[in-house]
């Protein structure tokens, strides 16, 4: 596997990072916060797209790995006074370890049963968050220290830049990966495991590596989220968040790295727009009603544009 210092994905990612880094100086705090959230979600979704889009698998429990990253980094920072930078590495490592162990259970299954198994494991992990008093139980973790750089403690702008720097790094890495023999083999697996096996590929091993990698992306995102919010509790990492990652992944385009970013941006931004506009028409609308539109968009996309928005865009470009 050879890694180019820059690939097309990486170059675009640098431009996007530069735009974000410039924009946060002009944007109101509210939009900077949204940008940070989109960055964090994008990171998770890029990892998920490798597993679902390229390897052709399905995970309905990705929020659990975000939670593991968040809790690990919080415990390291609060109880052991470890800097969040190392906390993020620790969070990614623990999420990877858990994913590795669980892969022996989950990855023996396919499609429907894999979906159910990842859903179940995600919920069991959430119950552990809730019941384990050492990590705060249902009341969660408070006063998680923020990232620092020398004497500078990260402010909301710095978090926006940090999260998008991670997105850029994540896109660059994944961009190299999908163009390598590893990525092409993943696509072969998604086209049919038997055929891939006949060519000497070990699907089990590749699926495991991809699953672990997706957990690393989620774990890093979780660690940044924990420090950014300075507060986490089990409900932040529920099944509903896992479903939201699936929404982002599918709406943006499963087999596309920028699709992950587009999907995360659409789910967050459309949610905000709908929350602002719909009550003007229907004053009684309350709660997360935007989910109705997101669910409907997901179904419409799967029926009309099975390759997602990003797939559609690249088709249009080629035409």
């Amino acid at each position: 596997m050879s890694f180019a210092p820059a690939n097309a994905h990486g170059r675009v990612a640098l431009v996007v990072l530069a735009v974000v880094a410039a924009a946060v100086w002009f944007l109101p705090a509210y939009y900077t916060g949204l940008l940070t959230l989109i960055g964090i979600y994008s990171l998770v979704t890029i990892g998920l797209n490798l597993f679902m889009g390229y390897a052709g698998q399905v995970s309905l429990g990705q929020a659990a790995f975000v939670g593991i990253g968040a809790y690990t980094s919080a415990v390291l920072a609060v109880d052991l006074h470890v800097t969040p930078w190392l906390g993020a590495v620790g969070g990614a490592a623990v999420a990877a370890l858990v994913a590795y162990v669980l892969s022996f259970v989950a990855l023996r299954l396919r499609e429907n049963l894999l979906a159910l198994a990842t859903l179940a494991l995600g919920i069991v992990i959430n119950v552990v968050f809730n019941e384990w008093e050492f990590i705060g139980g249902s009341s969660g973790f408070k006063d998680i220290p923020g990232f620092t750089l020398g004497a500078f403690t990260f402010d909301p702008r710095a978090y926006a830049i940090l999260s998008w720097a991670l997105v850029a790094a994540g896109i660059w890495f994944a961009g190299n990966l999908v163009r390598s023999s590893f990525g092409r083999t993943l696509i072969a697996i998604s086209a049919g495991e038997l055929g891939a096996q006949a060519l000497g590929v070990d699907p089990e091993k590749l699926k495991r590596q991809t699953f672990v990698l997706s957990a690393v992306y989620a774990g890093v995102a979780g660690a940044v989220y924990a420090s950014y919010q300075s507060y986490i509790d089990p409900s932040s990492f529920s099944f509903l968040l896992s479903v939201n990652f699936v929404l982002m992944s599918v709406i943006g385009g499963l087999r596309s790295l920028w699709g992950a970013v587009i999907g995360a941006a659409i789910v967050v931004a459309l949610g905000q727009v709908l929350q602002a506009l719909v009550p003007l028409v229907l004053p009684s609308a309350r709660g997360d009603f935007q989910q109705f539109f997101l669910g409907a968009v997901l179904i419409a996309i799967l029926i009309l544009l099975p390759r997602g928005l990003a797939g559609r865009l690249s088709e249009a470009r080629r035409a």
Binding site: M52, G56, Q57, V58, L60, R110, E111, N112, A115, V243, V246, L247, V250, L282, S284, A285, R286, G287, D288, F289, Q290, Q291, F292, F293, L294, G295, A296, L298, I299, L302, I303, P306
Partner: peptide
């Protein structure tokens, strides 16, 4: 096929829950 239909019924679940809010 398989995985796409999982996503569709998942979307249906999300949409129906959102509709109930309305």
């Amino acid at each position: 096929t398989g995985v796409t239909l999982i996503f569709i019924t998942l979307g249906l679940d999300v949409a129906l829950r959102g509709l109930a809010l309305f």
